[in-house]
Design a protein around this nucleic acid. Sequence first.
DNA 1: GGTGATATTGCAATCGATTGCAATAGGGTT
DNA 2: AACCCTATTGCAATCGATTGCAATATCACC
Lengths: 343, 343
Amino acid sequence: MGIKPAKTLTLSDIARLAGVSESTASRALRDNPVINAQTRQKVQQIAADHQFKVNATARSLRTQKSHTIAVIILFDAKTQQAITDPFLLDILGVIADELTRQGYDMLLSTSKTTDKDWRSYYFDSKRADGLIVIGQGEHDERVEQLSHAGVPFVVWGAASGTEHFPVIGSDNRQGAQLAVTHLIAQGCKRIAFLGDIRHSEIEMRYLGYQDALQAAGIKAEPALQLNTDFTAQDGYLQTQQALFAELGSLDGIFAASDAIAMGAMKALLEHQIKVPQQVALVGFDDIAMSAYCTPSLTTVKQDTHAGGKLLVAQLLSRINGGKAASQLLPVKLIERQSSLRRN
Amino acid sequence: MGIKPAKTLTLSDIARLAGVSESTASRALRDNPVINAQTRQKVQQIAADHQFKVNATARSLRTQKSHTIAVIILFDAKTQQAITDPFLLDILGVIADELTRQGYDMLLSTSKTTDKDWRSYYFDSKRADGLIVIGQGEHDERVEQLSHAGVPFVVWGAASGTEHFPVIGSDNRQGAQLAVTHLIAQGCKRIAFLGDIRHSEIEMRYLGYQDALQAAGIKAEPALQLNTDFTAQDGYLQTQQALFAELGSLDGIFAASDAIAMGAMKALLEHQIKVPQQVALVGFDDIAMSAYCTPSLTTVKQDTHAGGKLLVAQLLSRINGGKAASQLLPVKLIERQSSLRRN
DNA sequence: GGTGATATTGCAATCGATTGCAATAGGGTT
DNA sequence: AACCCTATTGCAATCGATTGCAATATCACC
């Protein structure tokens, strides 16, 4: 409709147009019942006609609420590349939708960028009312510090039980146990673990791996635990390089993420090792691609939908003066071709 | 260090502590050279000691700049699930890092959530100084409207040449042509196209597909163009369902994204069709997983790094009163197993 | 007609930082 | 000693919306 200079309107413009005071206009727009119904409608009509939007900045300043949540994605200092695991996208999407549904905006940042002081940067500066931290990294002290600073925040990760902040996450230990028990049931005797146990979540998965072995009376071999970054590339390299010596006798792999598993699968197939006949393989996450590689990947499905919603719910509760509690989400084993031998 | 009540400090507190006026304190913190060096240092020292951070809201209100960019991810009305393609994560990560490097915050939203009026919501409300729109969807009118509203924004997508806003994107047509020419060089004669040509980017890829066929003197068969969503699932289903009749004679597939390609590959392999011997396959994007499926996927690599940086650079230039121009980024064919027959 | 209750509306302060302009203090010059 | 210049600093207005409290209007009821 032609180019408008589009000098943005302010509340006072709307008030003037409606012939009322700014206070009345403000109250009318916020549906304050104390305002006469006719007045309210008139003001709202005029505001709508002019596409007026309250200046979020001014409102935030006055109300001391930003209605914004900062989401911080932590990841390896080592991998240090941009966020990369598809699993992150999953949960990020859920969080984004859920926050919007609740009337909050989402400020996104990666740990790479926001170097040090999230508290100051996001909270003290009033950029955000609260924080969602995804992944604890290698036991990041920054997270622990936050809890001493009175900042409302929740973490996606693995609770150790000793931390002073709410942690929402999958039951990693249980999931790993399911996975490895399944491998054992398929006849595997020597099962490798691919993952970096310095991450709390992975550590839990490692414990679950050990639980399953122990329950089956199999002795865990430390040589079969291979530190592996969260990438298909490293899954490939580790499998290739480190497992070489073991390949003859290895008959199962539990990878701490689907991306890692796919890398491992590539390495196995490249060496003409049959999956699952010679080596059975299970991943973790159930990213979209897992069902579509060949053979399709058995994996432990995390309920990202529930997780994202819960993160948001707990954080908002915390912001509104309530309590937020840690919570463990159930996981589910998805059996596919990469581990099913009888099929 | 114990729990501090942590009443957030304001500039006036800092000023008082330093024994200067608020104006002096403000100027000192902003390194205004008019302030005496000693005074400046003293104020900065005190601010640092108390971990003081300027209230971003108040600053924004006063300066009329939010130093925030809204990133909007558009996607299918149909698929309507949360953002899902790994490719998005790639470019999103680059944009996030680049914005932070430039001192901007990033507000993220998906089209699902922000229903209609981004202009009002993000710009008029002063939530953001500018917008980055990723993907044009099925020729979204909202994008065109933005350009008439004086909002600084840039789009990741495909330029048609007629739009009134800057579009940054890969040379999709050229990329598709490379891919399909490569397939033809591998001996393919009947090549299918998987992708939804209602998206401008995909439309360009389709044109490139036709270019290559034409250059080789092969007649394009409309029946071989299959509308396919951006998911492995739909790639699988389309390949399975629609290509059935053609499978005997089909010898090549060009998928408009790697995710689609992986779904297609699954369908092919499931039906014992040898890739690449019977059907050669090429994707688009070069997501991380493409190198690690089996056979590994030949694909057209988009330069997300350059793209993200360019989007940010152009937008900031536009915000600072300069011009922003559309730009086409070169792409590269990455040859892998899924299409290499002679190897 | 008087009085108190109720429904609406407006005044003015406030959120915290920034900045144009005025004020002050030294310093140098003649 | 008078005067101008420069270097620093402070005063006060401003950004736009919200909200406690006061003001006014309206109405019912005795």
